[in-house]
């Protein structure tokens, strides 16, 4: 049986930049307070156009759980590792705090968590998705307008697979070769 390949598909047309996902993530994952400490974010995009013909988009994001993760390549102690399902995570007790993974990440997805004394980042809420109730990641579940859809790319019947089949999508910084697994519908 094939492994799962977890991914998130985002429809940013729906995003209203309400910050529900960022607060849900912080409370669910014990991210310490402080504006440098976060696992996910909603990008403040610049205003387009000139008054009164203005436009603005909002781009939520987090760790891309790349299939070719530079963070995993550079970690000296193997603290950053990837599960068979594609989730990139940090084994806390192995992290030496050299922050190489932070300079290696093209997405600024990581931060150093003083409370667990290790580098921290989105884990697709592994405690929820592998937990008893099989819940969705907090950011996916809480979103008022359902911007994010979470699922298994290796399952052709999953919502994510169907969305990516039906609609064109893009990823962030494709030229980096990281093969990210956050897909933004165009």
């Amino acid at each position: 049986m094939k492994n799962k390949r977890f991914a998130i598909v985002l429809d940013t047309n729906r995003c209203i930049d309400c910050k529900a996902c960022t607060v849900a993530c912080k409370t669910e994952n014990h991210v310490p307070l402080g504006t440098d400490n976060y696992r996910n974010w909603v990008g403040p995009e610049p205003l387009r156009g000139t008054y009164p013909d203005l436009g603005q988009s909002f781009t939520p994001s987090q760790c891309q759980h790349c299939s070719n993760p530079p963070c995993e390549h550079v970690c000296p102690t193997g603290a950053t590792t990837v599960t068979p399902d594609g989730i990139v995570h940090v084994i806390e007790h192995k992290c030496i705090g050299c922050k190489y993974c932070m300079t290696a990440c093209p997405y600024d997805a990581r931060y150093y968590n003083e409370e667990i004394e290790a580098v921290d980042k989105c884990t697709f809420c592994s405690q929820r998705i592998y937990g008893e109730n099989g819940q969705l990641p907090a950011c996916v579940e809480t979103c008022p307008t359902k911007v994010r859809v979470f699922g298994d790319l290796n399952d052709p019947n999953s919502d994510v697979s169907k969305l990516l089949a039906k609609y064109p999508s893009r990823v962030l910084k494709p030229a980096q070769g990281t093969k990210p697994n956050l897909y933004y519908l165009i």
Partner: peptide, 24 residues
């Protein structure tokens, strides 16, 4: 530990906003 949206709550379409999460 966390405040999660109630999937049965039709009025909110089963969501919980930033303030709702911060209620803790």
């Amino acid at each position: 530990r966390k405040l999660d949206p109630n999937p049965n709550f039709i009025k909110s379409r089963a969501m919980l906003c930033a303030r709702g999460n911060a209620g803790v």
